[in-house]
Amino acid sequence: MKTAIQAELPPELLSQAQAYVNEGWMPNLNDLLTEALRRYLESHASELTATFIRDDVAWGLHGHD
């Protein structure tokens, strides 16, 4: 089941996305946005982000630079 959402996009970003679809890389804008969102969530996994932030804290507190 899919859910429709409404989002505001910068015109130039939408234009780039539409061009990508028009070139035939994706069948439509829906699929492109779904893929973009999936990739973002994959590469920004919550645990990974938290790990990096904790790493920052350790460096900030105990680094030797």
Binding site: F52, I53, D55, D56, V57, W59, G60, L61, H62, G63, D65
Partner: peptide, 13 residues
């Protein structure tokens, strides 16, 4: 590699 929070906390050190 580090980020904003690291720089902020490093400022104390």
């Amino acid at each position: 590699v580090h980020g904003t929070l690291g720089l902020l906390i490093r400022a104390v050190r």
